[in-house]
């Protein structure tokens, strides 16, 4: 009886003209299984790069002044969320490949996290940071999500203000914060960080104090980063700073 089954199966194969699927179909199927694995790695690496970028450009020098709440608010949650999503997708997809299930989820997840971080680091070191900086400087909801500094820097009562420069004077500037409120900012005693261009339309962060007439800035930082990478910045009102501010008009 058992012998009959093999014979019957072969008869069905011959009579039904059944053939093995072609190499192309077999390869396409294999590729179909690997494609999400690769995509998850690529997007996971971008998420890692974004996370590193936000962490590297955080205003961590202000921790002592603003405490633990500042850290909590400054974490790159958007990128972390996507990293987790893509790592989990990667693990799920990898388990579907020919022998992917052999390794177990923990090993695959650890490998994915380390690989995406390594590739994300490589992406940034090859100049990918400029792309992030551009994306995170464009006004809009995506900037607020990707580079979650808007909320952190929207507490003028605590000395943290941010927005876009509307007009620049000798020792003042007009700034429109991200909720649309216009501020008169006294920049007379402001330290202007190296990467700040001070031009209309530029997004900046300000440290200082709220005053009756607006905001007195003690420091002006670029929107992305703390601007300390290119020197210590210039003190407005100390000659060079004044000249520079004036020169921008």
């Amino acid at each position: 009886m058992e012998n009959d089954i093999a014979k019957k199966a072969l008869q069905r194969i011959v009579e039904g003209g059944i053939t093995p699927e072609s190499k192309t179909v077999a390869n396409l199927r294999k590729f179909g299984f690997w494609l999400p694995v690769i995509l998850a790695l690529v997007f996971g690496s971008l998420a890692s790069a974004g996370m590193f970028f936000v962490l590297m450009n955080g205003d961590w020098d202000l921790l002592g002044r603003f405490g633990a709440g500042f850290i909590v608010r400054s974490m790159p949650y958007f990128w972390l969320f996507f990293l987790v999503v893509f790592v989990l997708l990667g693990e799920f997809s990898y388990a579907k490949t020919t022998i992917g299930y052999r390794y177990g989820p923990v090993k695959v997840i650890i490998t994915y996290v380390l690989s995406t971080m390594l590739l994300g680091g490589v992406f940034l070191s090859l100049g990918g940071g400029a792309l992030f900086e551009r994306a995170m400087s464009v006004r809009g909801i995506m900037r607020d999500i990707m580079f979650n500094q808007t909320e952190v820097w929207s507490h003028p009562d605590q000395g943290l203000l941010s927005g876009t420069i509307k007009d620049i004077g000798t020792s003042t500037l007009r700034l429109v914060d991200f909720s649309g409120v216009e501020w008169s900012v006294d920049t007379q005693h402001a330290l202007i960080r190296g990467r700040v261009q001070l031009e209309n339309g530029e997004a900046v962060k300000l440290l200082g104090t709220m005053t009756a007439s607006g905001f007195a800035a003690s420091e002006i930082r670029p929107w992305v980063g703390n601007g300390s990478m290119r020197g210590n910045g210039l003190r407005n009102g100390s000659g060079a700073g004044v000249g520079r501010l004036g020169g921008m008009r």
Binding site: I5, A6, A9, I18, R29, K30, I99
Partner: peptide
């Protein structure tokens, strides 16, 4: 079993020698 044998034949190219 017949279905198994026929399916195996159809997918022979997907057989991976690591298994």
């Amino acid at each position: 079993l017949q279905d198994v044998l026929i399916s195996a034949y159809q997918h022979l190219r997907s057989f991976d020698t690591r298994l």
